[in-house]
Design a protein around this nucleic acid. Structure first.
Length: 408
RNA sequence: GGAAGGGUAGCGAAGUGGUCAAACGCGGCAGACUGUAAAUCUGUUCCUUCGGGUUCAAUGGUUCGACUCCAUUCCCUUCCA
């Protein structure tokens, strides 16, 4: 199977700028880039799913460059609905540093920052050297801009696409990059770069986009409860990541395996077969979790997440020693307990429940358990005596949310 | 700068003087069922010491009483310049 066929089979190709690209990908060694803007201090699983393409292409001998948008992040890619809130310069800088570090650590490829080549371009150069090549009508035709004309768009965001186009051209000129890969929402920006290069450098650059990964509710992969799943394990523990992946729906999980792992077609088809025979074993989900977490955090973290999940969902928490709990709950929300405190106060003061009212409701529903036992008494006194090894209290809210209290 | 429309809970959206802590939908959270699934069903969704307290962009005003009326301010959108 050629690279292109493999990508197609995995459903990773949405648009390509020219049919020629297939041949180029299969037969040549290209230098390509994929980028993201530093809108947060960590990448999330969504970035991961698209950045994986870098590793995939690299395996076939292409050279990846990862771009962190220190410049474009200051402007903001237009969202379909409304203007973005500007991020402060300091924050962007901070995010760039973190993302750069993270990208290097997880993917191990060269990382560049477009701020480096954009910061010294003055407004006149910008207009003459780049603005002159792009017609306004061309920009207005872009989906993302067109859609915003009704609700309004500032010049700042309107110009964003041009900045990204400049990146492509710059990377072509300085590093011989001829291909840009991105999520499908970036198509408009990729084509701006191609257009710019065609007019300015008289060269044909290539673009390829991947479809968004959606679950069966049409929700973007990796979005849960409005929180992203971060790749920084201090922001999202490997346990949480494991839980998200293991809960993938049957209808999506095979698709996820294709898109998020490096398992071969044969291996995935074998898993699919077994999975369909015994869906309740969730072999596909387990494999997915293993592959993804091992890639991001390494084997050790995966083992930890696995052990913790097994303990929490099959065994009983109070069979463990405090030491074991401490190890496998690392990363779970925790707090200190000093002296006696009623359960109700404990729940509210540590943000396990947002109000006393809510805490009572949970207690009444039997949603709260302490060290594995459901408790309904809001006045239960929590102290050293009821702690495991007199050290740790494990609070569970609902089925899956855990909190650790350390006796001080 | 001018004209018009608008700002209601996490979001969308009703309410246009009292029966409004505010319909309805989505989302969230919990419970049942289950495969830690999906679907479904049930409860709940400002705070509370359960007396009550604080909310409908902000500030003042009218009124016994304001989300509803008036004034000013701020913000958003559209059209015109």
């Amino acid at each position: 199977m050629t690279l292109f066929e493999d990508l197609q089979w995995r459903g990773l190709i949405k648009d390509i700028s020219s049919p020629e690209l297939e041949k180029k990908l299969n037969e040549e060694k290209l230098t390509f880039y994929i980028g993201t803007d530093p809108t947060a201090d960590s990448m999330h699983i969504g970035h991961f799913s698209s950045f994986l393409i870098a590793t995939r292409l690299a395996k076939y001998g292409h050279k990846p460059i990862l771009l962190i948008g220190g410049a474009t992040g200051l402007i903001g890619d237009p969202k379909p609905s409304k203007e973005r809130q500007m991020i402060t310069v300091e924050e962007v800088k901070k995010n760039v540093d973190k993302l750069t570090h993270q990208a290097e650590e997880i993917f191990g490829f060269e990382v560049v920052n477009n701020y480096d080549w954009t910061k010294d371009i003055n407004v006149l150069n910008f207009l003459r050297d780049y603005g002159k090549y792009i017609n306004i009508n061309y920009m207005l035709d872009k989906d993302i801009i067109n859609r915003r004309l009704e609700s309004g768009i500032t010049f700042c965001e309107f110009a964003y696409t041009l900045l990204q186009g400049m990146d492509f051209v710059h990377l072509y000129e300085s590093k011989g990059v001829t291909l840009q890969v991105a999520g499908s929402d970036q198509w408009g920006n990729i084509t701006t770069g191609i257009e710019l290069a065609r007019k300015k450098n008289n060269v044909e650059l290539f673009g390829m986009t991947m479809p968004l990964i959606l679950d069966d509710n049409g929700v973007k992969f990796g979005k849960t409860e409005g929180n992203a799943l971060w790749l920084d394990k201090n922001k999202t523990s490997s346990y949480e990541l494991y839980q998200y992946l293991i809960n993938s729906s049957d209808t999506c999980v095979i698709d996820y395996l294709k898109k998020l792992t490096f398992l071969t077609k044969k291996e995935i088809e074998e898993i699919e077969l077994q999975h369909n025979n015994n869906p309740e074993l969730r072999l596909a989900q387990k494999t997915l979790a293993k592959e993804v977490i091992t890639f991001i955090h390494g084997k050790e973290e995966f083992d930890k997440a696995l052990k913790m999940s097994e303990v929490l969902f099959s065994g009983n928490v109070n069979e463990l020693t405090s030491k074991e709990i401490e190890i496998c709950f690392k990363g779970v929300a925790n707090f200190d307990i000093s002296g006696d405190i009623t359960l109700l106060d404990l729940l509210t003061t540590n943000n396990i429940c947002s109000s006393r009212r809510e805490a009572r409701e949970f207690l009444n529903n039997g949603a709260i358990s302490v060290n594995g036992n459901i408790v309904k008494d809001e006045n239960m006194i929590i102290n050293k005596e009821c702690a495991i090894d007199e050290k740790i209290i494990v609070i569970r809210r609902g089925k899956k949310k855990y909190y650790l209290g350390f006796i001080k």
